[in-house]
Design a protein around this nucleic acid. Structure first.
Lengths: 234, 234
DNA sequence: GTCTATAACCGGATAGAC
DNA sequence: GTCTATCCGGTTATAGAC
């Protein structure tokens, strides 16, 4: 994340250290026993701190999740860098990034349902549309903007404007599938990614077709309206 | 729901009566204070039963939700009957059914987030893909099958086979939006419904176009594969 | 002001008597 | 079917240490 190394001795403040300790303990325990069966007391224990202290660093058990969530995003970006530097074909770039996502998330699948179920709760600070999540979401969307920016395709402006967000939405859909995927080795999610990436690329290509222009326009206008929270009237 | 009236005196068993009492109390309290701020103790109190007794009828606080969920489905079907009997135009039928959904759900919006957030949790018995929800989901899908069956359009068979489930999925998407909609009077959801119903109808029309045939085929094959839980290999 | 700990609260859930 | 008593774990209050 920030990762600043000031001098040589106190690389990280004591607090940061403790915080990391707790997060690490939580992650281990979540992997071992799942989210529900891991108690805050157990986490504090393994981290070697008191229960109250754990709450000093993380406002709730769910906030622990948000930290993990942000962490996986960093991992995802790192894992995507290589393909993005190499490929110029849109489909290849998108495929690379989506595969990176699946790989990054893999270790978390065991308790992934809990990790991401909050997406559905509008009152949770963890839902991806909440103000608290704005930053992570923006960064995530930026990654998809990069997928497009580095590709050797020319897109109509209206489409280009909306596409990063639409791709982000697509990627959320894949995650929703992933959550429910219980196939061995997550092969079904892998397959979904391969197939849908191809479909998405084809769709983007088809968007230029005259017959489809009005439809594309309607869709984009709708998306824009809804996103920008436009007029309640009319 | 079942609503059998055997004779005249003991129309319903004592149990059913108590069960209804608890559900009613829960609904009132949820509306008044929301889901989180309503305690099982308060529900039991208002229903005039003990805490333990409430748990005899509903295995958990969330199971109370499932009962409500099933209830809204019944309401939805009833509210849709009229349009389905009257209209034969596909878009009009779909619009009617979707509007009926929004109206049916309206009173529950206050705590609707909780009602439906469980959709994201694969381990919850309440998620719409769980075995426990199979029945409700099947009935709901059947409703969309009826939307199609009564419409004066001829669809290619492959499409006709998958469409009910795809429409159900679409309707789940609308619900997801509805959950997050905080516009006054839910006008934004209403608008979303109007616009997307039109888009969906147009898309179904376009599916016949030769240029789109391969794409449509790919999509349908994918959907079918994923639904039927086909081969993990290749 | 940053950090840590202990004790208590509260509400969902369960055990077991009647 | 119904109750009471109890457990358990997330969360909070609060006091003190560095």
């Amino acid at each position: 994340m920030t990762g600043k190394t000031t001098g040589s001795e106190p690389k990280v403040s004591k607090g940061e250290r403790t915080r990391a300790l707790i997060l690490e303990a939580a992650l281990e325990l979540f992997r071992e026993h799942g989210f529900e069966d891991t108690t805050m007391r157990a986490i504090a224990d393994r981290a070697g701190v008191s229960l109250g202290n754990a709450y000093y660093y993380f406002k709730s058990k769910e906030h622990l999740i948000q930290a993990i969530y942000a962490h996986t995003h960093d991992e995802h970006r790192a894992a995507s860098a290589e393909v993005l530097a190499r490929e110029t074909d849109l489909a290849a770039r998108l495929l690379g990034v989506m595969r990176a996502k699946v790989e990054t998330l893999r270790p978390y699948h065991r308790f992934g349902g809990v990790l991401f179920r909050t997406a559905g709760d509008p009152h949770s600070p963890l839902n991806p549309f909440s103000p608290e999540s704005r930053e992570v979401r923006a960064e995530s969307t930026a990654l998809f903007a990069e997928v497009l920016a580095g590709a050797d395709v020319k897109l109509p402006k209206i489409l280009a404007d909306e596409l990063p967000e639409l791709l982000w939405l697509y990627h959320m859909g894949v995650i929703l599938f992933w959550i429910h995927d219980d196939s061995p080795g997550l092969v079904r999610t892998e397959r979904l990614v391969e197939r849908t990436v191809e479909l998405v690329a084809r769709l983007i290509g088809l968007a230029r077709l005259p017959v489809l222009r009005p439809l594309v326009r309607s869709v984009l206008r709708l998306v824009k309206e809804l996103r920008d929270g436009v007029p309640y009237s009319s």
